[in-house]
Design a protein around this nucleic acid. Structure first.
Lengths: 245, 245
DNA sequence: ACGTATTTGTTCGTATGTATC
DNA sequence: GGATACATACGAACAAATACG
């Protein structure tokens, strides 16, 4: 493909192994849209016969797809395509999961950085449809102020809607990943009396700034929101650490 | 998927499949440091015997690790651990590679956002050792101004060193991933006469701001650098598109 | 409620090509 | 060149879980 000059010892890419090629082909099916989310793919034996390869080789590629979160295999049922939003949560998770949970501050710091940019971009690029989505999510949260789980879910939906309005897939994917990682702590936060209503108010401020097309204020409001939210979470964690060391 | 009041089909997490557990165990070995980069791991048959499982299951997990870029298997030789920096580049690559190159602006926009934060954090947290690393990378680039490939490599090293100085693994991982993705275009950029020296000058400004512990200026200098750099790249791409449609 | 067919999960045996010494 | 070690690949077989009539 890109036959570089001279020595390329680090990239002996001509990996002409069957599984490798097969894997890329299957990834192409999934991300390309030939196989749509929720669909069932042919059985292993059938697929291996169609492709003219052994079942073992097919399983190796299939298993990799499954571990990446693109597929879901169920015994006696079949193998199904997963939703695209889930693709990217796992890989980074492994890198993070290996180390201590002392990385929570880093996690929140990273999220703050990306969500700030997203908020500013959303204020510049949000379409009427985007705004409606965000507004609907905010309303949804207002209806679940007394339900921690529902409030947390709506909270995530608001941020996801803002992320869509930013119209940058990379940032949205990265943000979605970080949101998934901090979700357990956000849920804890919403269990605190009054936390949900305060959070809702902040979300409304962010929403207002985006609606008015003010990127600077959107960034500031998002920053305020995530910093107070982060402080609350850290407080909870420290309290838990003190209670049960 | 909106309302999961009834049965939760999406999260039957008790995935107690052998390959799944094995995979996580192996990932733990790699990221945990039990298996160090460059090391050779036991042969398939030997490992399967040690672990008390069949070779097929082991191969499925091993192959997934390899496709993720954590391992490298060579016939007749053995299986080896890969360098840590490559771990996270592939997964997102597939998601991006599938679509058109129209996502390049998004890619650069995302990188700009994260590198800005990294530069500011580095100005606040860089240790003397960090500063020395960055300085060494800058010197390295000065010695390769006439060598596009070498200049590109040094360019990446500078940003990597700054990323280390930021002391946030999440952001550094994300940034490293994006750097890998834009690397081909950065190489093209360094082929332009005079581009490397201009780039070097900007890097020196960033380095100076970090050394003086000025996060605001570090952020600004990084922003300037990546925006001029991005404009150059887009110019190249457009020219290529015009030449060979 | 029960039984059967389907499908994935797992293991083993074997053959082949390749790299290293 | 020969011997050894290794990954690659295929096929067959059985177990276990699920779906469906």
């Amino acid at each position: 493909m890109r036959s570089d000059n001279g020595r390329v010892r680090l990239e002996p890419i001509p990996r002409a192994t069957l599984t490798q090629a097969l894997f890329e082909k299957l990834v192409g099916y999934v991300v390309g849209g030939d196989w749509k989310a929720g669909e069932r793919i042919p059985a292993e034996r059938e697929l291996s016969e169609q492709l003219g390869i052994g079942r073992g080789s097919l399983r190796e590629a299939l298993k990799a797809l499954e571990l990446l979160g693109m597929l879901d295999s169920r015994v006696g049922d079949g193998t199904f395509i997963c939703a695209r939003s889930e693709f990217l949560s796992r890989p980074l998770l492994w890198a993070v999961a290996s180390s201590d949970h002392s990385e929570l501050p880093e996690l929140m710091e990273a999220r703050l950085s990306i969500e700030q940019t997203i908020a500013a971009l959303a204020a510049q690029r949000a379409t009427p449809e985007d705004l409606q989505q965000i507004g609907a999510a905010v309303e949804e949260m207002r209806n679940h102020l007394d339900d921690p789980s529902g409030a947390c879910h709506a909270d995530m939906d608001i941020h996801a809607a803002i992320g869509e309005a930013a119209h940058n897939r990379i940032l949205q994917n990265a943000a979605q990943l970080l949101r998934n990682l901090v979700k357990p702590w956000v849920l804890l936060k919403h269990r605190i009396p009054g936390a949900a209503s305060m959070s809702l108010e902040q979300h409304e401020h962010i929403y207002a700034a985006i609606r008015q097309g003010d990127p600077t204020r959107a960034r500031e409001e998002m920053s305020k929101h995530l910093m107070t939210s982060g402080d609350l979470v850290l407080e909870i964690v420290n309290r838990q650490k003190a209670t049960a060391p």
